[in-house]
Design a protein around this nucleic acid. Structure first.
Length: 565
RNA sequence: GCGCCUGUAGCUCAACGGAUAGAGCAACGGACUUCUAAUCCGUGGGUUGGAGGUUCGAGUCCUCCCAGGCGUGCCA
């Protein structure tokens, strides 16, 4: 990998120059290697001399000059097991930057690596197979998923893909909050609609769910059982209807996520956690361990000893465990299942919850295992006007409706273009209306266009095998747009690593747009398939590498890569 | 009150502490007898909310202020 080689080269130059007394000791110097914004600044650039100079109070250009002398010797010649020189030029610039220009043959060789690694290009082994559990979406199964859930679904899935790409062993989990008041209210609401549809006079629960979906469910249940529960004992009736409604709702949620292309490895039921006795058992243990105590008739956990603002209730005065108590048991269960790192993804409205959960895990001897990624909420708009959403009145655009209206790829992509730290304005009308100019199509179009070139070549009888052209053929590449495209391709590997480690999938969308732009520009300036067989072979190869990286990137985002549009 | 997030072009958003702050959309002007014009090229557009500070260098870090969002439950 070019960046890695460059880094090693710089580190060697640092050691050698320090040994010769030309620069200060470089121990622990943290420098940056990046693609410069301006072409005049070379293919890659580093601030190493400036960082070092600032630490030692020396002149950065002086240090840069000393380093450049050594870098020229080692980088511009063959060595270190290299068959080809890495660099064609290295120079000091500006306040003390070192700018690198890659040797063209080395660029071409690197391109062959992209092709030979194929779908694995961009993968790393940073995780060492560490088992990670990512919990996301996790909703009350008392209504259809709303638009906000879509953001977590897209984000969680893409993040999982990224983590897998850098070598973690990832499982996706959905925590079903199928226990507690909300479930009871839901059951009561369904029951009321059920009776209503059967012609009974009933009063709708004051705090019940008014959404029309509740009536739909009630109708389905009524048709299913022919109304045999109308005259059943009320307790029995509500319990059965609630249970069947829950199963129906759960199926709908699964289908929504399925059609969005998000598959969970596991669905974990909060209710089962209570039924198994794990929650109360854990509260008991906490008391034994001196981590929980009784006060005012309730049982409290001493989270404030571990960084929380105050202690939190585990068992209410009425003896019922809190959501927090269940969550402690749940997270310990995750760890017991062998996961070494836990990631939870959710909305910023859970913010107040993070510290106490981390405190609880620390109390249990697991500091730092829980990472919580909180995203800002989604504001749905239509033609600039905010769309009111309220679960109570039932006026809302569901996740399904959104996906149906704008399409899976557009929805996923829009969710992923913005950093999760910013509140997302999702304008449905814009997403549909601008669909022709939508960034997702821009990227997909690049992919489809390349496929079209390959098809055209096939029709012309151009040899389309998987084999990699020899260097003599590849040397026909050298136009500015060709080299720009190649260098843009090479950014992919580091980008994947950074996006995964920084939990920032939105960087990948940005990158793919840049890659597509580099390709479109190349396409508009040069013909791929021509009478010149050698040049055609070389360009086809470049274009195939581009195709590969577009595919690898889109697949991490969970966006399809169409062969024609 | 306290805590977290945000404030960048008309709009939606990018930018590991690095060089002249970038894309898309919107506006305007150009490019298809040639592999997909869902593309490309060009033009205009900015006191990065405000004020200080840290340093070789700040949209980025620190302090204060302003504005918006979300928290701050014996709800989940």
């Amino acid at each position: 990998m070019i960046v890695k080689e460059l880094r090693e080269l710089i580190e060697r130059a640092l050691e050698d120059a320090a040994e010769a007394g030309e620069i200060p000791a470089p121990e622990g110097v943290d420098f940056v290697l990046e693609r410069p914004r301006h072409k005049a600044h070379g293919d890659w650039a580093s601030n190493v001399a400036m960082v070092l100079a600032s630490r030692a109070g020396r002149n950065p250009r002086e240090i840069a000059t000393a380093l450049v002398r050594r870098l020229e010797e080692s980088g511009c010649s063959v060595g270190d097991g290299r068959e080809y020189p890495l660099l064609s030029a290295v120079e000091v610039a500006g306040p003390g930057f070192i700018n690198f220009t890659l040797d063209r043959d080395r660029v071409l060789r690197e391109l062959t690596r992209v092709a030979s690694e194929g779908a694995s290009y961009g993968r790393w082994d940073l995780g060492g197979g560490l088992r990670v559990l990512v919990e996301f979406v996790s909703a009350n199964p008392v209504g259809p998923l709303h638009v906000g859930h879509g953001r977590w679904a897209a984000l969680g899935d893409a993040l999982c893909n990224l983590l897998e790409a850098v070598g973690y062993d990832v499982d996706r989990e959905f925590y079903l909050n199928d226990h507690g008041t909300q479930m009871e209210v839901f059951a009561a609401s369904v029951e009321a609609r059920y009776l209503e549809l059967a012609g009974k006079e009933v009063e709708f629960p004051a705090e019940g769910y008014h959404g029309s979906y509740v009536r739909d469910i009630a109708r389905a249940l009524l048709e299913e059982d022919g109304g045999r529960l109308v005259d059943a004992p009320p307790g029995e009736r509500r319990a059965e209807l609630g249970e069947r409604a829950y199963r129906l709702m759960l199926r709908r949620i699964r289908e929504s996520l399925d059609s969005f292309g998000v598959r969970f490895d596991n669905w974990f039921s909060e209710r089962e956690l209570h039924r198994s006795g794990a929650v109360l058992e854990e509260v008991r243990k906490l008391q034994e361990e001196g981590l929980a105590y009784e006060k005012d008739g309730a049982i409290w956990m001493a989270t404030s000893r571990f960084g929380d603002d105050k202690d939190r209730v585990l068992l209410r005065r009425n003896g019922a465990p809190t959501y927090f108590a269940a969550d402690i048991a749940y997270h310990l269960n995750k760890l017991a299942r062998g996961y070494r790192h836990l990631i939870n993804i959710g909305g910023a409205d859970h913010h107040g919850y993070v510290r106490r959960m981390q405190a609880a895990l620390e109390a249990k001897g697991h500091p730092g295992v829980l990472e919580v990624i909180l995203g800002q909420l989604v504001n749905l708009k239509r033609g600039g006007e905010p769309v009111r959403m309220s679960k109570r009145t039932g006026e809302m655009v569901t996740f399904d409706e959104l996906v149906e209206e704008v399409g899976k790829d557009v929805a996923r992509y829009i969710f992923l273009t913005r950093s999760q730290d910013t509140a997302l304005d999702f304008d449905i009308q814009l997403a549909v209306q601008e669909s022709m100019e939508n960034p997702v199509y821009y990227v997909q179009y690049a992919h489809a266009r390349i496929c079209s070139i390959l098809r055209y070549g096939l029709g012309k009888g151009v040899e389309m095998g998987e084999e990699i052209p020899d260097l003599a053929t590849l040397r026909r590449l050298g136009e500015e747009e060709e080299m720009d495209l190649a260098l843009k391709i090479f950014e992919f590997e580091e980008l994947i690593r950074d996006a995964a480690l920084d939990r920032a999938p939105h960087r990948l969308t940005r990158y793919l747009e840049e890659l597509a732009a580099a390709f479109h520009l190349f396409y508009n300036r040069h013909r791929v398939i021509s009478d010149d067989a050698e040049l055609t072979a070389a360009r086809l190869f470049l274009v195939r590498c581009t195709l590969q990286v577009l595919r690898n990137g889109l697949s991490i985002l969970g966006v399809s890569a169409p062969e024609s549009m």
